[in-house]
Design a protein around this nucleic acid. Structure first.
Length: 458
RNA sequence: GUGGUUGUAGCUCAGUUGGUUAGAGCGCUGGAUUGUGGUUCCAGAGGUCGCCGGUUCGAGCCCGGUCUUCCACCCCA
């Protein structure tokens, strides 16, 4: 035996039970995507490197998995570039393809390429793996699934409202209560930066503000200062810190704070509309919270931004996120097309459901009825009955070998199979089956011709 | 990418200052039970102590490297 095999860091194998649970989540999400009128697309697992580079910021560029060119790729490198040992300069010369980093940029590329064949507004969903060359942690993998729903076309705030309802529907179906959707607006952040006189430092300002929960007011102020934001500006922003804690009145406080900022006021109007509409429609299992300190999201968001956090007490980063991007397709040459979308982090939702014990028991039920194998003659007699049950859509199986009864029952027990059917010598003679209910141990006898009777109890 | 952490049976983990043949629980296999699982009792199998190298008379234990796990940054789902 050679070296033990292994898989790359941050990747995983999935056992049948895990796949069953993952499929349960995927099907729940897919169902609601379709109920909300989204259509599926799929895109290649790898794109041209230039399609992806520069879309996620410097940090994102670093985390993109690049694919080495085929053949004698070093041969084409200019000697000067090679000699300089400059990785950034060398990369485009030895790699022209890269693994998909998210689903949004490929979607934007798709819209531009297929603009003449899609009807706007186009509501698409996409459930596929993405890859990031990140250092793994709990709930952070190098290969993971995103489940995205986006709308492109004429912009309307009703779409934001619908997407929030979509979040709510999915988490309700999954039985995951206490999920909190945080809501903010890029224009509010711009307005704040403008009002405090740090308009040119928007990104570092928002990145620092986002850490308020984590490092506190002092930490945020220190980080802003380190980012080159002036002391006067930071002090002007101070009311925001206390406001972030008092989430009820945040819009009123913000209105006052941003009264001189046109952009800022637009952001407030948007959020007011979204929050009030949601309030009248009511959410089922999730809560909506306006949070000025929410600043995450990729560089392309321009309007509302969302982030979904797991219920309190579960230590997990965000399990979903999204927002509006007014000009995503602009970078691919198609102007004035607005989009808004959300994403579900399948792998993290899985971990949350697992931790809270929220997977339905039936999810792992691969077989409903197992026929015991008593030998060739009995097994052959069972086959027509099994075929009939399978024809009715019942997950039915015959134990594949004439093993000890004890072993077959143990197998059924370990697999959580609820019913075991006995068809041995006696049953064969009398043309009956004995059905054992594994939950309570009770047994019932049915004639072969009355199989339907048994089926109807399932 | 930076700093730290982890790895021993299929799983969860013990393993003393470095000292014979590395343990437990669960699981697995067989038996008590030749037509009955989930409870009980008895017996058994199962380990290159992540990998490579070093120190030592002697390494699961000490040192270096490497891979992996998890954590804090960074960033993110």
């Amino acid at each position: 035996m050679a070296q033990k095999p292994s898989i790359p860091k941050g990747t995983r194998d999935f056992s049948p039970a895990e796949v069953a649970k993952r499929n349960y989540i995927i099907e729940t999400i897919r169902h609601q995507f379709e109920v909300f009128g989204f259509q599926p697309i799929e895109t290649p697992s790898f794109e041209n490197l230039e399609t992806l580079m520069g879309k996620y910021g410097d940090e994102g560029d670093r985390l993109i998995f690049k694919i080495l060119n085929s053949g004698d790729y070093l041969n084409k490198v200019e000697p000067e570039v090679y000699a300089q040992k400059d990785s950034a300069g060398l990369t485009p010369q030895i790699s022209e393809k890269a693994l998909r980093y998210d689903l949004t940029v490929p979607f934007a590329r798709y819209v531009v390429m297929h603009q003449h064949e899609i009807d706007l507004p186009f509501k698409r969903y996409q459930i596929q793996p993405v890859w990031r060359a990140d250092r793994p942690q709990k709930g952070r993998f190098r290969e993971f699934y995103q489940c995205d729903a986006d709308v492109v076309g004429p912009g309307s705030l009703l779409q934001e409202v619908e997407l929030l309802q979509l979040y709510d529907s999915v988490f309700s179906d999954l039985g995951l209560n206490g999920v909190c959707i945080k809501l903010n607006h890029r224009k509010i952040l711009s307005g704040i930066a403008e009002v405090i006189g740090a308009g040119d430092k928007l990104i570092p300002f928002t990145v620092a503000l986002d850490k308020l929960d984590k490092i506190g007011q002092e930490g945020v102020m220190r980080e802003m200062s380190a980012a080159g934001i002036g002391q006067a500006a930071i002090e002007k922003a101070m009311p925001l810190f206390s406001m972030a804690k008092d989430k009820q009145n945040s819009l009123d406080v913000l209105s006052e704070f941003l009264k001189d900022s046109i952009v800022g006021k637009q952001g407030i109007e948007d959020l007011k509309f979204i929050a009030e509409t949601i309030r009248t429609l009511e959410l089922n299992s999730t809560s909506l919270e306006i949070d000025v300190s929410l600043a995450r999201g990729l560089n392309y968001y321009t309007g509302a931004i969302f982030e979904v956090s797991a219920p309190e007490g579960v230590n997990m980063g965000s399990i979903g996120g999204g927002g509006r991007y007014d000009d995503l397709t602009g970078i691919f040459g198609l102007k004035d097309l607005s989009g808004v979308g959300i994403s579900f982090g399948l792998d993290r939702i899985y971990l949350v459901l697992e931790e809270l014990g929220l997977f339905p028991e039936t999810v792992e039920e691969s077989v409903q009825v197992l026929f015991v194998n008593f030998g060739e003659k009995e097994a052959l007699a069972a086959l027509p009955l099994i075929r009939k049950m399978r024809g009715e859509g019942i997950k039915t199986d015959l134990y594949p070998a004439d093993a000890k009864l004890q072993k077959q029952f143990k197998y059924a027990n370990n697999r959580n199979i609820p019913y075991v059917v006995l068809l041995g010598k006696d049953e064969l003679e009398q043309k009956v089956i004995v059905v054992k209910d594994m939950a309570n141990g009770s047994q019932n006898t049915y004639a072969w011709k009355d199989l339907q009777q048994f089926i109807s109890t399932l």
